[in-house]
Design a protein around this nucleic acid. Structure first.
Lengths: 144, 144
DNA sequence: GCTGTCGTAACCAATATGGTTGCGACTTCG
DNA sequence: CGAAGTCGCAACCATATTGGTTACGACAGC
């Protein structure tokens, strides 16, 4: 399916910022976040830009600038993050419209679409049950 | 997420072959299936090759050759099809290992992996509840 | 043999993802 | 006021996936 790591990296950044704030710091820089996630600051800024558009984080510019939470960790679910960084369906229908003069081709699209809608609804429900607070707690609870 | 249409096209082909057999025909050609799904015969052969490896269909070569079901439609679930044509996880972890000297980087991977495993388990359960017989019935039940 | 179909390789185009560089905009601070 | 640090964003590149296309050998039925 060619999975990507956007949800993982976004969750990483949020957990990092959340923990950093609890340690008394004001803002985290994309440089720090990129270093922790082992990626590039621009990649972090791109992802966090989408989270900011979704109202999950805020950014300040200028010297001593960086990123901070716009909501508490326990008010952000993985569904919020998923919707901020992923768009489009999980499964695609046909690229080209199937043969409408065929009993299958004529009706398979709405049928598959219904099935996919049900699956995505379930996926969203699962994601909505997990908060970033849960994620951070589990991370800190792991030994080592 | 860059969704693909592999599950859709595979289900289309299976429904088509299943219906065709019920109409008394022996085998369906990749040409017929491609025409119905509005794609290329080679694309169909590639996908059906994966379904054959999974034991869902059979193929005959030579003149008058083509594809037939290896199992009844009601003995094939969408999970069978999904596992035949999709491999790899729904969500990827970090591309590069995160900073192991960081409280977050050190433990986020197992935490996210657990979450993703739960979600994929749910996805598989949903897919396993729908058979190709259900799909074909719904297609034929739709008016027009 | 001839014909029709699969099996498969090879190549191409389009798209998504993620890394990288560069630079302007902005804000703090000396 | 100027220097420094950081974001915002565009541009470009490498890689991988997906799907379409062509080509051709292998195979089986007639």
């Amino acid at each position: 399916m060619s999975a990507n790591s956007r949800l993982t990296i976004a969750a990483h950044a949020l957990a990092w910022i959340g923990l950093y704030e609890r340690q008394g710091y004001e803002v985290a820089t994309s440089e720090q976040l990129a270093s922790s996630a082992n990626t590039n600051p621009v990649v972090i800024r791109r992802l966090l830009g989408e989270l900011r558009r979704a109202g999950l984080v805020e950014s300040r510019r200028g010297a001593g600038a960086g990123w901070s939470m716009a909501r508490e960790l326990n008010a952000i679910t993985l569904l919020d993050v998923y919707e901020a960084v992923e768009q489009g369906p999980l499964f695609a229908l046909h690229r080209a419209t199937p043969d409408q003069s065929c009993a299958i081709g004529c009706n398979i699209q709405p049928v598959m679409q219904d099935i996919y809608a049900g699956i995505e609804k379930t996926l969203r429900h699962e994601l909505s049950r997990i908060t970033m607070e849960d994620v951070l707690r589990d991370i800190l609870a792991t030994p080592r």
